[in-house]
Nucleic acid binder design. Structure first.
Lengths: 353, 353
DNA sequence: CGAAATTCCGTGAACGTTCACGGAATAATT
DNA sequence: AATTATTCCGTGAACGTTCACGGAATTTCG
């Protein structure tokens, strides 16, 4: 019941207060031009009658055009960010019902300048709210400072920064995901050596989003397997041959012993491909995120477990939080929303999406 | 990136189709009194223009009051059904925005008559839609027949029956959850014996909701561990002392060997309590559902894993599906919605809710 | 063929807000 | 006191639907 049982309208309030609905509306929206006396009277009447504005009528009448702009890394079919994009599009559909337009703006996560450019375009678009998946610390901080100064609310997804002007955050607890990963990988077994496959990337201006995850992983290992040998292998994901060469090289010492392998980003499928190619069985392999390629590695048995998050839901939740606060004026219930970490294996992965 | 605001109104459609908005409205709501020709033309135009009705205008104009009644087993703080109830209340809040009232009606899951009574009250309330968590097969079938005859849509949660008049179903794939459970319990270990702890319940008129789960479990075992010995232990959950006695008795043969234990309902905490009481360590224990008591058993290490479902989200999804179909007239996208099976251990359980 | 029945459709008044516009009342200034 | 500024407020037209009403067009039938 939108209006409560009594169905009290703005007209009822106006009548009871001896003014017109226009005046009531003015105090309702703090639009000024109302004498102190009327104002107080109206407020009193509103309270007494328990008047609750009708959201539909309000939304209908105020043809406000809200735009929410989302800034995320470029994506292509099947990769990590495409899932986030999917969530954004879903939320966009729902938001349309409220007359809210959702725009997605992408940037090259390996190119600071493209991020700066994207931010500029966002500000030009004059959005009512912003969703941002940050990859560059300094530039993001500068950007949100701009947003704050313009009174534009923003919410972080995926990871957040240490400022606290954000309306909300939706993402995975990174440190804990690394800790959990180690537990799943080792799983009470004997552990002599663990390979961490990492990506060589252009480090300048770039903050590795998985660093906390690695920290969590390492902490678990030093707590539970202090004598285990941790080997880092760096690969260039863009060059398949080089990947294989690197792994061959790393495994040369004990070629056919079963291994423990882990990656902290979404590319574990690279490792799975390698293992299949080389016919290596019996390895214990754990990775992150539900890309289609990772799922098939899970099904084929080259990966034992994936730790996943519903980044589509996170994205949608971010948009919804913004819509709620923008349109309905409802306060955001929780600022930091750590989404659950899902453990996927071959038996439950089919029901994940 | 995403469509602009729904600029297209019913008037635009009317003009483009060469009719009046009244006629368009009639086809939008299947209110009849429209010639086949106009109808088709209008439908075509709607599709071409991508017309989306403005929910708010619609809600404003049609001062309809919808009520959704949910029939679920009685619950109390912290038990399985309280989570479902929580989801219902959350959805209720959202539904209020659309002027939809959500009512929850409970019945004693061990008493057919109370279920019958609840159904009667539901019908009296004259709801626009019903959410139902069925426990009694025959009575539920009779009930939904009544609903169908009155044209009241209903959706199943938790489990469903073999009729197919339901609008949607939200629940866990029970068979697979048992299969998964066996995989997690055994986990590549040697398995000689597994204890299944079950509940003695008054069987009359009662269909055990976990039977499919048990079947899945057993299938896994015969496939992977054909020689394993499966022992069923029956307990009465209401009598703690008797539970302990029964377990003592069952374990008498090999008292202090580490055991594998499993329960297919939400009461694994009973087993955990027993193990703590008896100081038995090193057992492998797997159960279902995220009751607070189960979570603390997980934290304390007496339970290794829980298989969980977001029954709150299922409940909310059920209400939302009904709201969508009632208010927005949008068809339900999927009839059978099998929600994901979450694997919880001590490292990821804190982020589950 | 004409009247009655039936089918189909347009009209316009709600629904409860928002907000621009213009005017009344009051205060400030000359 | 007359004029001008300022403050305050009422009016009414949107916003995009829904749906009752009445009438036009078409069909049916004697």
């Amino acid at each position: 019941m939108v209006n409560g049982p009594g169905k009290i309208t703005i007209n009822d309030v106006a009548k009871a207060a001896g003014v017109s609905k226009g005046t009531v509306d003015r105090v309702l929206h703090d639009r000024g031009e109302v004498s102190k006396k009327s104002r107080e009277k109206i407020l009193k009447v509103i309270d007494e009658l328990g008047y609750k504005p009708n959201v539909y009528a309000s939304l209908l009448a105020s043809q406000k055009k809200h735009t929410i702009v989302c800034v995320i890394p470029e994506y292509s079919e099947g990769d990590f960010w495409s899932l986030t994009a999917k969530g954004l599009f879903e939320a966009s559909e729902a938001a349309q019902r409220y007359g809210v337009v959702v725009e997605v703006m992408t940037y090259d996560q390996y190119d600071v300048d493209s991020f700066r450019a994207a931010c500029g375009k966002v500000l030009d678009a004059g959005p009512s709210g912003v969703v941002i998946a940050p990859m560059f610390r300094l530039e993001t901080l500068a950007f949100v400072k701009d947003l704050v100064s313009r009174g534009i609310p923003y919410v972080y997804i995926d990871s957040k920064l240490e400022d606290d002007g954000y309306l909300a955050y939706f993402g995975m607890p990174m440190y804990q995901s690394g800790y959990l990963c180690a537990d799943i990988l080792t799983d009470g077994r004997n552990v002599r050596k663990v390979y961490i496959v990492r990506i060589e990337r252009d480090k300048k201006g770039h903050s590795d989003p998985t660093v906390m995850r690695r920290t969590g992983f390492m902490d678990y290992m030093t707590e539970h397997y202090p004598s285990a040998h941790i080997v880092n292998v760096f690969i260039d994901p863009k060059n398949a041959d080089a990947v294989y060469a690197r792994l061959d090289e790393a495994f040369a010492a004990d070629a056919d012993a079963p291994k423990m392998l882990v990656m902290f980003n979404s590319r574990i499928h690279l490792v799975a491909d390698y293992l299949r190619e080389r016919g290596m069985a019996g390895c214990r392999v754990v990775g992150f995120d539900v890309l289609e390629r990772n799922l098939s590695a899970l099904r084929s048995g080259h990966v034992q477990a994936l730790i996943a998050q519903h980044s589509d839901r996170q994205a949608a939740a971010a948009v919804n939080a913004l819509v709620d606060s923008l349109i309905l004026g409802s306060p955001v219930p929780k600022k930091d929303n750590y989404t659950q970490m899902d453990i996927l294996n071959r038996y439950n992965c089919e029901y994940y999406m």
